[in-house]
Design a protein around this nucleic acid. Structure first.
Lengths: 334, 334
DNA sequence: AACGGTCGCGGGAACGTTCCCAGAACGATG
DNA sequence: CATCGTTCTGGGAACGTTCCCGCGACCGTT
C-alpha cells in the first residue's frame, strides 16, 4: 500500500504539503507543486487510508442508514437511492436494520456512531417519539416524528390522488386499509383519503377502515374484514403495495375478481406490482428525490432544525382499478 | 468519548495493560488486575474505537458483501442472514451493489478493500470467470465460479424436488423457464430439471425450455413463449420466484388459470409468493445456513482452497400446483 | 531600502489503539 | 541463598493521516 509519505518522497515535498494538496475540502490549489503532487499521487496510485484519515479528522465520509428491514422492497429501494446520492458526494453508506424494535434501533445507532459515521438517515421515525441519536447529525426519511429534519413524500397528496382516482371512476363506497398509527406516512395517507372523500362529497365512514400494519399479512386480514360482508366497498385504497397485495389475496380468496368486483390501489410502486397478473394501480414515490433531500438536510443544512422537505408523488393507473360494476349504486354482489 | 487512557488511569494501570486485557483475541486472563480493568472499563462505558484499532491492527472486524442489487428480495434476505451470522461473531457487515455489471463490481471491490474489510462475500460469481479480489480473503455465496470457496444451495436437488413434484402430480409435459447461463444456480437448476425428467421417464424436450434471465420481465416473456402455442406444457418450473411471477402474469394474460390450466413452481420462497392470490409452490433455500457457511469459509478455513459447502433445500407445496386437467394426456385446451 | 502583509512550505504533535521489548516480580530448583 | 525461568507490567514506537504553528520567500508600498 502506497502511503502519503511515498508520494511526498517521490514528489520531493513534505507529507504536510501532500496532505494539504490532496485535501478535498480545501479550495483546489492550482499551484505548480500542487499539480506535481497530484500527478505523482495519481501515478503511484495513492488513495487515502480511510481509517487513518477518519481517526485524525473526526469524520469518515460515511453516512449510516437505519431501516426496519431490507427485505421490504421499499426500504431496499430507498437505501439504493441514498447510496447513489451519497456516491455523488463521495460518501459511503452503511446500513443497519432494526426489525422495527426500538431497542434494536438503539443498538444500531450506537454501532453506527461508534464507527464514526458523519450522519444518520433513519426511516423508522414514530410520531411523538423524537429520535435520540446523541449529537450525531441526522435526518429522517419517508416518515417524520414531527420535529426532526425530514425528507418525505407528500402522503396526503398521494392518498388524495389515489382516492380521487377511485371516485372519478365512479366508486362511492371506498375502503381504506391503513397502516400503523406511529408511522406519519400511514397517518398522512389516511388523512388524504378522508379529505378526498369529503371533498368528493362522499363522507367518511369508519366502518370502511381497517388495518394497522404495513405487512402483506395485515393487508390480507384487513382486506377480508372489509370485503367479506354484505355491504363491501367497491374499491379499496391500501396504505402501501404490500397491504394491497394482501387485499388482492383476500379478494381472490373471497371469489372476487379484480377489478371487476373490487378495485384496488396501492402505494410506492415497488417493482413487483406492475407485473402481477392484475397489474396494480399505485402511487409512485420519488425515492431518489427523497434520498437526495435527506442527504441535503444532513449535510448542507446543519443549522435549520426541524425542516421538512416534501416531494410530490404520482398516480400510476394500471389494471387493478376500473369503474364499479353498477356505477354509483354499489348493489349487493350476486 | 472515553479512551483507553481514561480506563488506564481509573484502574491505576498502564494503557498497555488495558489494551492487553481487552484484546478479545488473547486467551481471557482471569487475573486480579484483569478483572479490575474489565470492571472499570464497563463502568466507564469504554468501547474500543474501531478506527484507531483498525489502523493499528490491520483488520476492521468487518466483512464486505457484494450483491447485484438489494431490491432483489433474495439478495436482501441473504444479506440480512449474513449480517445476523456476522453479528454472532462480533463482525460488522457492509454491502455494495453492482447492478450485475463487472466494472461496477470492480469498483465495489476496490471501495470495500480500501475500507480494509477483513473479507468479502460475493453473490455475483459467473461460471468460468474466477473473481479477482486481490489478496483479500473471500468466499462466494449462492453461486459458484467453479473454483473459489463457495457456500451454495443444492440447486440440482431443489430442481429435482420441484420437477419430481410436478411429475408426481401427473404432469407429462413440463416446461422450464431458465436463467442466465453465467449463473451456476441457473445451470444447476436446469440440470436438476433435466435429470428429474429423465429419471421419471419423460425425456428432455428443448422446445419446452425458454428464458435466460432472473427478472420478472424475462419470466413473463419466457412464460408467454412456452404457453402461447398449440401444445403448451401443463406445468412450468421457473428458475426463481421472480420469473415464476412473470410466468404467472403470462398465464393470466393468456387466459389460463393457475393451477387449473397450468401448474407453476418457483424457487427461493421469497415472502411475497406465499401471499399471492394463488400462493406459489416453491423451493425454500436455507439462507441462514448458506450465510453461516460463507462466513465459515471466509474466516475459519483460510487454507482450504476451493471448498464448496452445499445446503439442501426443501419443497414447499402451495396452491399453484395441482394435477393436470387430463392427467397424462395433455389434451388441447378448449 | 526598509517594512508589513500574504502565501506556501515543512516539522512535529496529535488522533486512539496495538505491538515490541525490556525489566520487574515471583516461584521453583539445585 | 543464588540462579534460572516464567509471567506480568509499563514505556514508547508505530499505524497513516491531519492540523497547528513558525519560518522564509515574495510582493507591494512608502
Amino acid at each position: 500500500m502506497v502511503t502519503i509519505l511515498d508520494v511526498a518522497r517521490a514528489a520531493g515535498v513534505s507529507k504536510s504539503t501532500v496532505s494539504r494538496v490532496l485535501d478535498e475540502r480545501l479550495p483546489r490549489s492550482t499551484n505548480a507543486t500542487a499539480e506535481r503532487v497530484r500527478e505523482v499521487a495519481a501515478e503511484l496510485g495513492y488513495v487515502r487510508d480511510p481509517l487513518a484519515s477518519g481517526l485524525r479528522r473526526s469524520g469518515t465520509s460515511t453516512v449510516g442508514v437505519i431501516v426496519p428491514r431490507l427485505t421490504d422492497t421499499v426500504m431496499a429501494m430507498l437505501y439504493e437511492a441514498i447510496t447513489e446520492a451519497a456516491a455523488g458526494r463521495d460518501l459511503f453508506t452503511v446500513v443497519a436494520t432494526t426489525e422495527d424494535l426500538p431497542e434494536v434501533q438503539d443498538k444500531a445507532v450506537q454501532s453506527l456512531r461508534r464507527r464514526r459515521v458523519d450522519g444518520l438517515i433513519l426511516t423508522t421515525a414514530r410520531v411523538g417519539e423524537p429520535v435520540d441519536v446523541g449529537k450525531t447529525p441526522y435526518a429522517l426519511a419517508l416518515r417524520t416524528d414531527g420535529s426532526s429534519p425530514a425528507a418525505i413524500g407528500d402522503d396526503r397528496l398521494g392518498a388524495q390522488l389515489a382516492t380521487r382516482h377511485l371516485i372519478d371512476l365512479g366508486h362511492r363506497r371506498i375502503g381504506l386499509v391503513g397502516g400503523p398509527a406511529h408511522a406519519s406516512s400511514a397517518r398522512g395517507r389516511a388523512a388524504g383519503y378522508r379529505e378526498a372523500l369529503e371533498s368528493g362529497g362522499l363522507g367518511f365512514d369508519p366502518a370502511l377502515v381497517a388495518g394497522d400494519a404495513f405487512s402483506i399479512e395485515a393487508g390480507e386480514v384487513a382486506g377480508r374484514q372489509l370485503l367479506d360482508r354484505s355491504d363491501p366497498p367497491s374499491a379499496v385504497f391500501a396504505v402501501n403495495d404490500n397491504t394491497a397485495i394482501g387485499v388482492l389475496a383476500a379478494a381472490h380468496a373471497l371469489g372476487l375478481e379484480v377489478p371487476r368486483d373490487v378495485s384496488i390501489v396501492g402505494y410506492n410502486d415497488i417493482p413487483v406490482v406492475s407485473r402481477l397478473p392484475v397489474p396494480l394501480t399505485t402511487v409512485r414515490v420519488p425515492f431518489r428525490q427523497i434520498a437526495a433531500d435527506a442527504l441535503r438536510l444532513l449535510l448542507d443544512d446543519g443549522s435549520g432544525t426541524g425542516e421538512t422537505l416534501v416531494s410530490a408523488p404520482t398516480l400510476i393507473p394500471r389494471g387493478s382499478t376500473a369503474a364499479p360494476r353498477q356505477p354509483g349504486s354499489d348493489g349487493p354482489r350476486p
